[in-house]
Design a protein around this nucleic acid. Structure first.
Lengths: 222, 222
DNA sequence: TAGATTGTTAATCGATTAACAATC
DNA sequence: TAGATTGTTAATCGATTAACAATC
């Protein structure tokens, strides 16, 4: 379960990307692939791909490349996808519902076992067979059930409060969609999805785009 | 509008974060701040903050620090937030609705001027005063209206198709929520929000967490 | 003025790429 | 075996941190 060495964050960020491309290749019934072919698919250099994978062991074979199915499974294991992570959602607006309805999470080891909100009009509703509970019940729910991941899709004003309840309730990780940074003890992992920041990044790139209209007309699609 | 030099991607990613913290400080009526104080709020080193800001000019003053309002405005300008970006959404499931209902975008210069879907049951519905149109209409809509940003909140199987229509329709940027990479010409900016990848990252951190149960009990909150 | 804090240069650290010997 | 392609070391590049002179 635990890797001895510290893996660089840059590598960790790429693992799900490898996993996704390998999944596609598997769906296409491809059996083997070289770092060079992978490189032209994903856009990372072949060198980087080999370097990345060798953080975890030699999964390839000289003269052959990588067996896609085996590599997919290995990376899945490295990412911890061989375990199950129970999740609860707090805040069941559109975003919370989008996650709750994403049944793929269910199928792939991330079952949602509780949904909470403070809005009385939502409490009692059923989403994907799970009844929305009063957020007041969160603490007692966490006492009674083992919850691995707490999802915050509530207002940012409530976010730290919810996080504190998650922490007291022994969640291992928090998936935070509120546009703020949470204070958590170091043994709790947080993953932020700061959606609006990515829109701002996009605005930056658009407004600093060096291709004038003329270039745009002349340029072809790569 | 255009910066002469190339700004590092790492810096660009931090701009919205500075912007967000400065917004909070402004709301709290704080007038000035030093890089050191900012450092302890945001968690970046003071050195990095000064280094980052000096990519764009000397916004501070020795012995004083930074004027929050002025810095906020400067960074806003750098991020391109002094312009308006018209947007259309394609795919109005829960996620698309979450974005459409996020009225803050409207207020902050990102008006949504069109919503599209292929589902006949959704076409004609009104979301935040905007009628959902048949996705068949997208191409002609783009001919008739200047659209800066195309948002893809549809199935990944449709994503490249939608992107191609966006490109033909002269959008400047694509905000892609589908779990796939898009092929676009270099003069179109793409910002991906690969939500599931962040969940996988979280799973990685949880499963490689070095703090045992014992440590967890003993550790305090930072 | 003296103190504080920036702007900026230099040093360090980390991540990516290049190169090639090992080996299937 | 010969060819292909990995695993891995070394070189490069980029980003972060440290240090301090400039200056408000």
């Amino acid at each position: 379960m635990k890797e001895k060495s510290r893996i660089s964050p840059a590598v960790i960020k790429r693992l799900p990307i490898y996993h996704r491309y390998l999944e596609e290749l598997m769906a296409d019934n491809v059996e083997r692939i070289s770092s060079n072919e992978l490189s032209s698919m994903i856009g990372f250099t072949a060198s980087q791909i080999r370097q990345d994978l060798n953080n975890f062991g030699g999964f390839g074979q000289q003269g052959y490349g990588y067996n896609i199915k085996a590599l997919y499974n290995e990376i899945g294991k490295i990412m911890g996808l061989d375990s199950e992570y129970s999740m609860v959602i707090v805040g069941i607006g559109n975003l919370g519902q989008a996650i709750a309805n994403h049944t793929k999470y269910y199928k792939s080891g991330f079952p949602i076992i509780g949904i909470f909100d403070i809005n009385p009009r939502l409490i009692g509703m059923k989403i994907n067979d799970i009844e929305v509970q009063d957020a007041e019940e969160l603490t007692s729910f966490l006492e009674e059930h083992k919850v691995d991941i707490g999802i915050i899709t509530a207002d940012k004003t409530a976010a730290q409060d919810i996080a504190d309840k998650f922490i007291a309730g022994h969640v291992k990780g928090i998936w935070n969609f509120a546009p703020c940074d949470l204070k958590v003890p170091e043994y709790v992992s947080v993953e932020n999805v700061h959606v609006t920041e990515t829109l701002n990044e996009l605005a930056y790139h658009i407004s600093h785009n060096d291709y004038g209209e003329k270039d745009v007309r002349e340029a072809g699609i790569r």
